[in-house]
Design a protein around this nucleic acid. Structure first.
Lengths: 175, 175
DNA sequence: TGACTTTCATTGCAGATGCAACGATAACCG
DNA sequence: CGGTTATCGTTGCATCTGCAATGAAAGTCA
């Protein structure tokens, strides 16, 4: 008998569908009012916690390819939301930090993002939510052991509660 | 004090990271050996269950934009994996179905896809897995009530166990 | 010091993506 | 019938994406 594959019950597919739907709902908050892409939003969000960091550091922390970070940062800079400052100690590095405008936009978006998340969290019990996260973590562990899977980005593997783990190359910068 | 947003603990972000990692791991199976894109894989998988269907039907069922389905189908056709047949009863419609070659490729990929999924499922208890899916379903329900969220695609909302729910416009086609 | 390797950010480029048209066909309805 | 509307699949186009390659700047080590 011919192979029949039930895509709608397939775990990777279901994950992708939900993830995309949630992402698009969230994108409404930063796209509609501030014309930001996903990459730009992630960069801003990361900068809100980590101060002046390099492109490499952002790449390591927010699951974006380095060129994507670079372009996102350039666009944010052209909009006056971040600044790129050379690092005197290392001519290769760039110290990227938020401007007041960037901070103002974050101050507007972050509550909306939290609101979207809160509505999702409130729809399930704390126990179920904990189970959900533990399942996600175990699946990451499965992929960590799979040579055909991509490695996890640094911030995601180093624990979600750790302090910012500053890049030694850029820590101690102004900003 | 300035807004500090912990991206790595943000639910939409975490969902996106896991989903992308799983998707990329799965893509290894159909990309490396058969040079298929996600869209092409989804089209083939859908056809394996639903026989001869229209572009519109695929679009409704596998969470892909219509142009993306159209191009995926065209590329699959050029590779001899599917056929596009006109529907005599309705000149607008196209009856898309698998060729023997397409079926052969599916016969190769599907076990690999199941293997990836099995490893993930085996990493958690059946109870936790059930909880995971019920949480996903509740989040879909939250988004269903949100006017700023996109509607769910047909197959995903009509239940995962329903029979194929053939498009009345294309049902009864050869294949 | 000086050749070699590594790391950094950027750029090129081929291909994918999303959205808005478009032409063609069918359905609706007076 | 005939005109309007709706649907189907496709295409145009601006943008984004991923990957490799580039040039600049450390780091390494004899």
């Amino acid at each position: 008998m011919p192979t029949a594959f039930r895509l709608s019950a397939f775990l990777p597919y279901r994950l992708a569908v939900l993830s995309e739907r949630v992402s698009r709902r969230l994108a409404v908050e930063y796209e509609r009012s501030h014309d930001l892409s996903v990459a730009e939003w992630r960069v801003l969000a990361h900068l809100s916690r980590c101060g002046a960091v390099s492109v490499r550091d952002i790449h390591d922390c927010v699951n974006l390819e380095k060129p994507r970070v670079s372009r996102a940062v350039s666009r944010l800079e052209s909009q006056g939301l971040v600044t790129k400052a050379p690092v005197d100690r290392d001519g290769r590095l760039l110290a990227i930090s938020l401007t007041p405008s960037g901070r103002a936009i974050l101050d507007d978006i972050v509550p909306k993002a939290h609101s979207v998340e809160r509505r999702l969290r409130e729809a399930v019990s704390p126990e179920d939510l904990a189970t959900f996260f533990s399942v996600m973590e175990r699946w990451h562990a499965v992929l960590d052991d799979d040579p055909d899977a991509r490695p996890r980005s640094r911030m995601d593997v180093e624990g979600l509660d750790a302090p910012e783990a500053p890049d030694p190359a850029t820590s101690g910068l102004p900003g």
